[in-house]
Design a protein around this nucleic acid. Sequence first.
DNA 1: AATGAATGAGGCTTCATTCAT
DNA 2: GATGAATGAAGCCTCATTCAT
Lengths: 210, 210, 210, 210
Amino acid sequence: MPVISAKRMQDRADSILRAAKTVFSEKGYEGSSIADIARAADVSDGLVYRYFRNKRDLLYHVLRVFYERILVDLERSVMAETTFEAQLRELIRRHLSVFVADTDLCRLFISEVRVASDYHGSAIQELNRAYTSVLIKIVDQAVAAGTVRGDINPRLLRDIIFGAIEHRAWRFVNSRGALDVEETTDELTALLTRGLLAPPARRRAGARAG
Amino acid sequence: MPVISAKRMQDRADSILRAAKTVFSEKGYEGSSIADIARAADVSDGLVYRYFRNKRDLLYHVLRVFYERILVDLERSVMAETTFEAQLRELIRRHLSVFVADTDLCRLFISEVRVASDYHGSAIQELNRAYTSVLIKIVDQAVAAGTVRGDINPRLLRDIIFGAIEHRAWRFVNSRGALDVEETTDELTALLTRGLLAPPARRRAGARAG
Amino acid sequence: MPVISAKRMQDRADSILRAAKTVFSEKGYEGSSIADIARAADVSDGLVYRYFRNKRDLLYHVLRVFYERILVDLERSVMAETTFEAQLRELIRRHLSVFVADTDLCRLFISEVRVASDYHGSAIQELNRAYTSVLIKIVDQAVAAGTVRGDINPRLLRDIIFGAIEHRAWRFVNSRGALDVEETTDELTALLTRGLLAPPARRRAGARAG
Amino acid sequence: MPVISAKRMQDRADSILRAAKTVFSEKGYEGSSIADIARAADVSDGLVYRYFRNKRDLLYHVLRVFYERILVDLERSVMAETTFEAQLRELIRRHLSVFVADTDLCRLFISEVRVASDYHGSAIQELNRAYTSVLIKIVDQAVAAGTVRGDINPRLLRDIIFGAIEHRAWRFVNSRGALDVEETTDELTALLTRGLLAPPARRRAGARAG
DNA sequence: AATGAATGAGGCTTCATTCAT
DNA sequence: GATGAATGAAGCCTCATTCAT
């Protein structure tokens, strides 16, 4: 017989988690204090420790919830597309959207977790792996189908795409500018699929004549 | 007449800067204390404040020196190449090398500075801009020369390249694996120039016949 | 009509008391938390406060039970001996055995209670008095019988004996060595009854002659 | 060039040490906070940590100073006596005096340190050993000289004497009664040297005739 | 009667920064 | 110019105790 209902407890935990998400996002991990979070959750300092082992644990839960949210439907919606290019475009669009919608959490992840010594091999890394594995999968399929060149290293490609998006989104976000998700998606997809180089001269023959 | 010579002052400042670089690199910004740095520089705590406004200022100076170092010759050595692809390859190689050689400083930059609210518009950002502008320049030239497709957005390309390298290098660095600079340079250059997609079928016809 | 039977209440109290004994013994008073004890007793934190006023009260009850246990039969078994020396030996043996068997409780008593400001005049002190009074009694009888010198101060003797045993046992206990109860009993009894000094020379002369 | 004179620093350290001695003595180790001690020393909390590694270190320094003080001249003054009995008496007197004069420190030692897991093998234990070794020495000499019975175990005797005194003094101290050092010294010395038992009857015959 | 969630004070310790020397 | 002693504000976390359920 719990003293308060399970729902009430869940609410409390959620409330602390939400508060932590907000505070961490705004002030960074080191810059946030448990007292800040407790105050934001309208809860006593001590209660935070009933629901989370310590400050670090709280951070991980925040990021776990985040990852679980962005993972939902990712694979399904990407695989719903039929061509490699459409799949790639969908993945890029979704990932850009995450950055636009959850900039602060992305920053948190980048600046506090990926850097951390305990990241390698952690549950968070596992979620990250699950997230990026969707890309690996579509590239493998496309290589098998002959759509994508066989000398492509899927893991390098993964780093290119996620690194590029992260960088791109970050810049916009921090310069407080707006990122046009659709346009960026198109440009990035085009660049990746077709490459930088102009087509061979014979196809441009007409242009040369002009 | 200064009580100590200007040269001696410069030596002191350098010594503190060097110490700060080491300590920050090893322990991160929050993890380092002024006392740590002063001890490493064989100087009193108080003296640090004569040369640098505060801990944050010290960090910025460390990164400034770092940037100035990696900027040296960058433009010259890239422009020394004659084709766009060679220029791109050179830029990628150099940037990958920076990550490999100065992992800790890169981490410092990524986790402590780019995140900071005072980064936008700062002197550090200016250096970053100077660093990345080399890429913009070679792309603009290549577009003008018709080597690179005219619909390429040079700023997007910049984010792709630097984002990709950062991501790639970071992964290797944190998984304690070795990053093969030459191989990664080749793969990344190839991917960016030629794109992901396999050439049109008619070009493969010959191969198929073989 | 109580909601639970008196017996059940007693069981609960006993269970808490047993848990407290274990936990206090293992971790010391300050090192133990009510939560520790409640968990060990398989009971809620709050219930502890229904049976005991507070943490301190719990400690006193633990020690009370301890004292009551070691008091049982003490007087009877000591008085069953017929000579003073045998009575003294029995008392020493039993007290040494308590230290060996219940080291942790003894430590608890020494370090947490005897020191406490509320000890003087407390129920625990009363039990301690009852315990040590057995010694006073046999000494008084032996003095009356002429077996023990009349100038002996029984209270000083009491402190000597209990202090000596405590000291001796403590040393062994903390150095993780084994204390030989029988040997220590013999030596201590001999020393106390016969004193330190060698017999006068003239008595040794005869011995030497014999 | 120290910022403040060495003397000033020593004064600070002494002042903190004195404050710690007082506060620990009054409230026990666990009951004292660094803030209490800093306030008593009229110093900031942080300064305590410049002079002492941590709270425990502070406790050990307090006890070290104490031991060094009571060790001074102990051996010299005991060995100045010529007979075993006089030496023993001197040792007992001095030790009783320590308890009377420094009750609180004795309590501190007994309740906080001897109990501690880090006592065994510590510097404090070494000081304790030095202190008690004086007794071992005079007993060994007396045994060699034939004054003390050869079957006496000097280490057992040490525990008897120090245990007895500790117990005796403790009781008085805590009952706020006054301990008569001279009287207790005499009684304890007599008891230990001559033993409890009345002399054989034939020797009392003469006394009876007297 | 029993629970255990909730409180909130308080503990130890660190450290950026200042300023008397 | 240089020192490093001194400050004091936080920070994280624990836990005895209470009280709504």
